[in-house]
């Protein structure tokens, strides 16, 4: 979508909050690796919390980026669940993928940015817009 000269911006859709989070994660990892070739051989657990949905999405993507690199995994599938505790929204679940290998690599995502960052409700659910520094 909207072309940034040095970076990449994508949009993601979902009927539910979980779906749009999962679709956003797929969007990010399709830049990092050849996502269609990544098998769900290993998993990692993700849990993030925030006061609002938009911050939660930013935290979710940023944490996935960090954790996937620490664990050395390319991720391709995501199964998330939300819950609300006191004033906090929590997103937890599992991400699946395989050990990183440069042959299946794309490019390095240096960070998830707030540039043009959006998470909005639509008639059919949610739409997210995310720009990444690469």
């Amino acid at each position: 979508m909207d072309d940034l000269t040095s970076d990449v911006m994508f949009e993601a859709f979902g009927k539910t909050l979980e779906e749009v989070f999962e679709a956003s994660a797929e969007g990010m990892f399709s830049v990092i690796c050849d996502i269609d070739k990544i098998k769900p051989e290993e998993s990692l657990t993700i849990e993030v919390s925030a006061e609002d949905e938009k911050t939660l999405l930013y935290e979710f993507l940023s944490t996935l980026l960090t954790e996937s690199e620490i664990k050395g995994l390319f991720l391709s599938r995501f199964r998330m669940k939300t819950e609300r505790k006191n004033n906090q929204l929590i997103m937890r679940g599992n991400a699946f993928g395989e050990k990183m290998s440069p042959e299946k690599g794309g490019t390095v995502v240096k960070g998830v940015t707030y540039y043009g960052f959006k998470l909005e409700k639509t008639e059919n659910g949610y739409r997210a817009q995310v720009a990444m520094d690469i």
């Binding site: 990092i32 690796c33 050395g72 390319f74 050990k99 990183m100 290998s101 440069p102 042959e103 299946k104 690599g105 794309g106 490019t107 390095v108």
Partner: peptide, 12 residues
């Protein structure tokens, strides 16, 4: 040789 000696790419 350089490509073999200097790891490059995502996840190298």
């Amino acid at each position: 040789c350089l490509f073999a000696n200097v790891p490059c790419g995502v996840g190298a």
